Computed example of a mutant assay.
Amino acid sequence: MKYLKIITPVVFLLMMNCAAQNKTKEFDKIAYEAQTRGSVVKLTIEGNNLSYKTYRKEGAKEVTKEQLEELKAIINELNLEEISNLKAPSEKRITDGALHAEFTIKIADKEYRSSTFDAGNPPKELKKLEDFLYKLSDVKE
């Protein structure tokens, strides 16, 4: 009986901790910005609205519930605390061979900013997110 009094709270705490880790992250805003001299691509999702801006055009469109769910799943795969430390696989942006790109993800009162990378060639952890945003916006890189 004595052991039961000790084991029960420990098991309860472990279960609560596991449940808390499985919660999905609800983002407030996702922003992608890629630019170099004379060229810019900005893609922003807030709520169920996607706004886009390039050197040639700008606009907005509504994001479906299914697309938002897929986007949440992609965000939940990321370790947001570490995206600022991700290493870019190439360095073409240094010589204007590619646009300088970065993500900013806002969840509640916290903002997560990625390291800069070549547009179209992000760190592998961010590739899925970049591809999905371009697909949603119909903007060509």
Score class of each variant (00 low, 15 high):
M1V: 13
Y3S: 04
I7E: 07
I7M: 08
T8A: 14
V10K: 07
V10N: 05
V10E: 13
M16L: 11
N17P: 01
Q21V: 10
D28A: 12
K29D: 07
K29Y: 06
I30V: 13
E33C: 03
A34Q: 12
T36N: 12
T36C: 07
R37Q: 11
K42F: 11
L43V: 12
T44D: 15
E46A: 14
G47E: 13
N49R: 14
L50R: 08
Y52S: 09
Y52T: 05
Y52W: 13
R56Q: 14
R56A: 14
A60H: 14
E62Y: 11
T64C: 07
T64E: 12
K65A: 13
E66W: 05
Q67E: 15
L68Q: 12
E69I: 12
L71C: 09
A73N: 11
N76A: 09
L78G: 07
N79C: 01
N79E: 10
E81D: 04
E82D: 13
E82L: 05
S84C: 03
S84N: 15
N85F: 14
L86D: 08
A88H: 02
K92M: 05
K92T: 07
R93N: 04
R93F: 03
R93C: 04
R93P: 00
I94H: 01
T95D: 11
D96E: 10
G97D: 06
E102K: 08
T104R: 15
I105F: 05
I107Y: 00
A108R: 09
E111Q: 10
E111L: 01
Y112T: 04
R113G: 00
R113P: 00
T116D: 08
T116V: 14
T116G: 00
T116W: 03
D118G: 00
N121H: 03
K124H: 02
E125T: 08
L126F: 02
L126E: 06
K128Q: 08
E130T: 02
E130D: 02
D131A: 03
D131I: 00
F132D: 02
L133P: 01
L136N: 03
S137Y: 02
V139T: 00
V139A: 01
